[in-house]
Lab assay of single mutants.
Amino acid sequence: KNALMQLNEIKPGLQYTLLSQTGPVHAPLFVMSVEVNGQVFEGSGPTKKKAKLHAAEKALR
């Protein structure tokens, strides 16, 4: 199970927000955030999926 699945089991129905998309078309950088218990966690990556995963990993720490 990855961090997204684990976080969804603990806190179902979380909303992930796209904060920014920067970089060239062939190498974009997405920044996504998720709010858990009033705290906002951000993650970035080359795809929205990876950015969401990194945000979930930070939220689980």
Rank of each mutant, 00 (worst) to 15 (best):
A56C: 05
G23L: 04
S33N: 14
K11W: 14
K48E: 11
V40G: 05
K58A: 12
L14W: 02
F41R: 02
I10V: 09
Q39V: 11
L19W: 04
M32A: 10
F41H: 07
V40N: 12
E57S: 09
V34W: 02
G23F: 03
F30G: 02
L18F: 09
A27T: 08
A27M: 10
P28S: 05
L4G: 03
T22F: 07
S20P: 07
N8F: 06
N8W: 12
Q39F: 06
A51G: 03
K50V: 12
V40E: 10
F41G: 01
N8L: 08
H54L: 10
L4K: 07
P46V: 07
A3D: 05
V31K: 14
G13T: 06
G23Q: 05
L60C: 05
P12S: 07
Y16C: 03
A56Y: 03
A56M: 01
Q6R: 15
L7W: 03
K49N: 14
G23H: 05
V40A: 12
K1T: 08
A27C: 12
K49I: 11
L18N: 04
V31F: 09
A51S: 03
L7G: 02
F30K: 04
T47F: 00
L29T: 13
P46R: 13
P12R: 08
A3I: 13
N37S: 08
T17R: 13
V36F: 09
E42D: 07
Y16T: 02
A27K: 15
L4H: 06
A59C: 10
K1R: 11
G38K: 07
H54M: 13
G38C: 06
A55D: 01
Q39G: 06
Q6L: 14
I10C: 07
A56D: 00
A51I: 03
E42M: 10
S20V: 06
T17K: 11
T17Q: 09
I10Y: 10
A51Y: 00
N8Y: 10
F41E: 01
P28G: 05
K11V: 13
N2K: 05
L4T: 09
K48H: 07
I10A: 08
Q21D: 05
P28Q: 13
P46G: 08
T22K: 10
Q21P: 05
S20F: 06
L19I: 15
T47D: 07
P24C: 10
K1I: 15
P46A: 12
L4A: 07
A51E: 03
F41W: 04
F30R: 02
K58T: 10
A51K: 01
P24E: 14
Q21R: 14
A56L: 03
I10P: 00
K48L: 10
I10W: 13
M32T: 06
K11R: 13
K58F: 06
I10F: 08
K52M: 13
K58R: 11
K58C: 12
G38P: 01
L18S: 04
A59S: 02
G13P: 04
A3E: 05
L14T: 12
L60R: 02
H54Y: 09
V36L: 10
T22Q: 09
E57V: 07
S33E: 10
K49M: 14
A27P: 08
E42C: 10
E35Q: 06
I10L: 14
I10E: 06
N2G: 09
S33Y: 06
K11A: 10
L19E: 14
Q39K: 10
T17H: 11
T22W: 05
Q21A: 09
V34A: 04
E9H: 13
I10G: 05
K50H: 11
M5F: 15
V34D: 00
Q6M: 15
L19M: 12
E57C: 07
K58V: 13
K50F: 06
E42W: 05
K49A: 13
L7A: 01
H54G: 10
N2R: 04
S33P: 01
Q39I: 15
Q15H: 10
A59R: 01
G43M: 00
P24F: 04
Q39E: 14
P46S: 12
K1S: 07
M5D: 15
G23T: 05
A51F: 01
R61T: 11
N2L: 03
G43H: 00
P12V: 04
V34L: 07
A3S: 15
L60M: 10
